[in-house]
């Protein structure tokens, strides 16, 4: 058991190390997210009241697109240099290694988005009482975004030109997260109950964390064959 956890930890640490080697690339999603979200107020009239109504959707759509940025390349380097062959042949369950890699990606891509979200929310005039719900929703929803993006990346890793395909593949998996994540914030804005959407997001998160590493591992194995 320990050897399995050690192996998963090694995968996790390797991802972080690789991100540190290329800091510019690693911070791209965060920069993209901030720029995208802050473009909306620029496009609206100053102090437009509509901004506040759109804020939940803006934050969530920006997070979604940021999570998709570069997800296509997630497994490509490891497939091309033969690393994934070694993962497959190691005496450790392959889905666990894939899960560890995706978990590291969550920390690298999504965690900064959550940290930056309150600032973005303030810039979008979101009411303070809704910010907590926004963060909680992002906490539950971003693993869904990252893991389903990873699954789509695994599905297309053997296909040469899959860049345009990825949004279609992940849309069905990501749009429930968007609906309930933004829905919870909207409910909080007008004082409605936020429990339902948050519970649903949590359910989606648990389901994604459980099933998608298996599915992604299967898709990768298929692409390698």
């Amino acid at each position: 058991m320990n050897a399995m956890l050690d192996a998963a930890w090694a995968v996790f640490v390797r991802e972080l190390r690789l991100a540190l080697r290329r800091p510019a690339e690693a911070t791209q999603p965060l920069v993209f997210y901030c720029v995208l979200a802050l473009l909306f107020p620029l496009g609206l009239a100053a102090q437009d009241v509509g901004l506040r109504a759109f804020a939940p959707a803006i934050v969530w759509v920006s997070a979604l697109l940021a999570a998709l940025l570069g997800i296509e390349r997630l497994f490509r380097a490891d497939v091309d240099d033969g690393t994934l062959e070694q993962w497959l042949l190691a005496d450790v369950p392959f889905p666990m290694l894939v899960g560890a890699k995706l978990a590291a990606q969550w920390l690298l891509i999504a965690a900064p988005l959550i940290v930056a979200a309150p600032l973005i929310a303030l810039a979008l005039n979101l009411q303070p009482q809704a910010i907590g719900v926004l963060l909680l929703g992002l906490l539950f929803g971003t693993p869904v975004l990252v893991f389903s993006g990873g699954f789509a990346a695994a599905l297309t890793v053997g296909a040469p030109r899959a860049g345009l395909l990825i949004p279609i593949l992940v849309l069905p998996m990501m749009c429930p997260a968007l609906i309930f994540g933004a829905g919870a914030v909207r409910a909080a804005q007008v004082g409605l109950s936020v429990e339902g959407p948050l519970y649903f997001l949590a359910a989606m998160m648990v389901l994604s964390l459980t099933l998608l590493p298996w599915a992604a591992a299967g898709a990768l194995r298929n692409a390698l064959e």
Partner: peptide, 16 residues
């Protein structure tokens, strides 16, 4: 969403 899932399967099939 179901329609998009179908389109995903069709697109994926053609990508390889």
């Amino acid at each position: 969403v179901l329609l998009f899932l179908y389109l995903g399967v069709i697109g994926l099939n053609q990508a390889y």
